Simulated scan of single mutants.
Amino acid sequence: MKHAPPDGDASELRQAIEVLAPATATCPLIFASPHSGRRYPADLLRMSRLDRHALRQSEDSYVDLIFDAAPRYGAPLLRALFPRAYVDVNRSRDELDPRMFADPLPKSVDARSTRVLAGLGVVPRIVADGQDIYDRKLHYIDARRRLAACYAPYHEALQQLIADARRRFGCAVVIDCHSMPSAGGAPLREGDRRIDFVLGDRYGASCAPGLVSLVEHALVKMGYGVSRNAPYAGGFVAAAYGRPAEGAHVLQIEINRALYLDEARIARTACFEALRANMQRLIAELAQIDPAALRPAQAAE
């Protein structure tokens, strides 16, 4: 599939997602970057009270580029091209905030979700630093259009990639790739080291423990500080698609932005390429996994 410009400045949304596919799939891995989109639609820029730089505070900036070696190791990379401030695909499509809309929402809306109450639903009310995105009410049709244009294509692509991997290898492993503010990497206890990576498997519910241990061991060998499920245990994608007993595994990886990003400028630092090279080493190691170890157990005869 044709590569999109990594830093597109599109005035309107022409393409919502991109799948960077390997020439041949040789492993059950699927890398996904739901929050690194950098194409800001014209309607968002027009309706927002914030400028583009402020909106970009919600991005997992350049995470798609950190993992873009995946196709070379036989694994696809799915990336959203639209920004998280526009639509957050790591949410249920029903997580809408009635406070944002001028007209009534369907009864199916999950208005009491903790993420919605925090302003971080599928159509976010705030950016990462707490600023309101809008100074006006939206209409439900705005949300419906965004869900149809962005949310649906992303999840349809992810579901297809999972189905393809399970058909070919008997299992699927989604590595859900994110980054976290450097403040989120503060030590959990006094005297502990900084957290560089958080591995989220919803406390064992979304991924085989052996796979999590493999990733943790590989990162620790590279010299990184690693935490499991704290402060991030995994979001909607892990909850919705992680079914280890059925051969579908989801591991959420959060990278401390201090490792590669000038957070104030939202610019890659000189350390970016070193991190990218280490993640290529991690991809290469994961690509050697024996799918048989991750397939669902056969029912007793």
Results as ranks from 00 to 15, higher is better:
residue 93 R to C: 11
residue 80 A to K: 14
residue 69 A to F: 05
residue 66 I to T: 04
residue 66 I to S: 03
residue 91 R to T: 05
residue 96 L to K: 03
residue 98 P to S: 12
residue 72 R to I: 02
residue 81 L to M: 13
residue 67 F to Q: 04
residue 86 Y to C: 03
residue 88 D to L: 00
residue 74 G to I: 02
residue 85 A to Y: 03
residue 67 F to I: 08
residue 70 A to K: 13
residue 64 D to C: 13
residue 98 P to R: 03
residue 70 A to C: 05
residue 98 P to M: 09
residue 94 D to I: 05
residue 86 Y to R: 07
residue 88 D to Q: 00
residue 61 S to L: 12
residue 80 A to F: 02
residue 74 G to H: 11
residue 95 E to D: 07
residue 91 R to A: 09
residue 71 P to A: 12
residue 86 Y to K: 08
residue 79 R to K: 15
residue 81 L to C: 12
residue 80 A to N: 13
residue 82 F to A: 15
residue 80 A to G: 13
residue 95 E to R: 05
residue 69 A to L: 03
residue 89 V to I: 08
residue 95 E to Y: 06
residue 89 V to H: 11
residue 93 R to T: 06
residue 85 A to P: 00
residue 86 Y to T: 01
residue 96 L to R: 03
residue 75 A to P: 03
residue 87 V to G: 02
residue 79 R to L: 10
residue 94 D to H: 15
residue 66 I to Y: 00
residue 83 P to D: 06
residue 89 V to F: 04
residue 61 S to G: 09
residue 76 P to K: 09
residue 74 G to R: 10
residue 86 Y to D: 00
residue 70 A to Q: 06
residue 84 R to T: 09
residue 93 R to E: 14
residue 89 V to W: 09
residue 60 D to R: 10
residue 80 A to E: 04
residue 73 Y to V: 04
residue 86 Y to W: 04
residue 85 A to N: 02
residue 83 P to I: 05
residue 85 A to L: 05
residue 91 R to K: 06
residue 62 Y to C: 08
residue 70 A to H: 04
residue 94 D to K: 13
residue 86 Y to H: 11
residue 65 L to Y: 01
residue 79 R to P: 01
residue 67 F to L: 07
residue 76 P to R: 12
residue 80 A to V: 05
residue 73 Y to S: 10
residue 95 E to I: 04
residue 75 A to L: 07
residue 92 S to A: 12
residue 76 P to Y: 06
residue 75 A to R: 11
residue 72 R to T: 04
